[in-house]
Design a protein around this nucleic acid. Structure first.
Lengths: 141, 141
DNA sequence: CGTGTTATTGCAAAAAGTTGCAATAAGGAG
DNA sequence: CTCCTTATTGCAACTTTTTGCAATAACACG
């Protein structure tokens, strides 16, 4: 649980507060290491913090995403899952078996530049997920 | 209404059927020309087709997307909006004013190739939306 | 044109996600 | 260590989205 405490100063310096709820949710995300849906977060974090409620989970997840501590990821069905923020990356998911791998953000840097100069926009972030068939599914069914 | 009828053969050849519901929804998407949320589609299409229900709208939108007649787009809040399928493109949206412009898919082609050769995946599609500040919002607030 | 198959819809109920607001508690100030 | 401000939570009600299933109606076929 202590492992997530480092986030506290970060939040405080922005005028926000560290709470048991946020700590529990960060802890869950941190230790799972993968994407979790709000329902999964609620389930796991409830075990660590009694009395946690669903609205709090939804609000906290959104809050953490806005503050860069968690990253939302689009998993193909229009719903969001979250993971702890590490290095910037995107996802490549197999339409057939659901298997999924990371795509380094650096691969998109050049594209970012192109877009900025072509559009005049100043890019801040993006929601990017690629879909396809993984090597295994390209062979057998 | 007739304008959307061209889609019928396309569906039939795949073993699906053209129905008044699908026609109405295609019609709405076709004539609006922009993104519509399921709720907006329901509202507009209900006016054209009496008795249309929400579950049908959700199912139809998903169905149209799966069959390439409509495209889902992530509008930044984790929810999907749909638009009629035209040329492949993505979106660049201003975080401040919400203004939005299209990004040609061709700009991503090179990236697609890179990804395919680096991952072994065979790309089929992607969910891509870029966020940033538009030129106007970069100046005044 | 009827007829049969089965994709599609509507309905009702469930699940998921959101919102308003009063009560609570984090944490800076004294 | 106590007090005060106000960010945050829990609760309850609400809206949105999904699901199961029986009834309906496309449309291929004769």
């Amino acid at each position: 649980m202590t492992c997530s405490a480092d986030y506290a100063p970060e939040l405080r310096s922005r005028g926000y507060r560290m709470t048991p709820q946020r700590l529990a949710i960060l802890h869950v995300l941190h230790h799972s290491g993968k994407h979790l849906t709000p329902a999964q977060v609620y389930q796991k974090a409830s075990r660590e913090l009694d009395g946690l409620t669903e609205p709090t989970v939804y609000r906290t997840l959104e809050f953490l995403a806005e503050n860069g501590l968690a990253r939302p990821a689009h998993m193909g069905n229009g719903h969001l899952a979250y993971e702890i923020a590490r290095h910037k990356h995107h996802h490549l998911k197999c339409r057939n078996c659901g298997n999924e791998m990371e795509v380094q953000h650096s691969l998109l840097e050049k594209l970012y530049r192109q877009l900025e100069s072509a559009s005049g926009y100043q890019l801040t972030d993006s929601h990017v997920t690629f879909f396809g068939l993984c090597p295994d599914c390209q062979r057998g069914e």
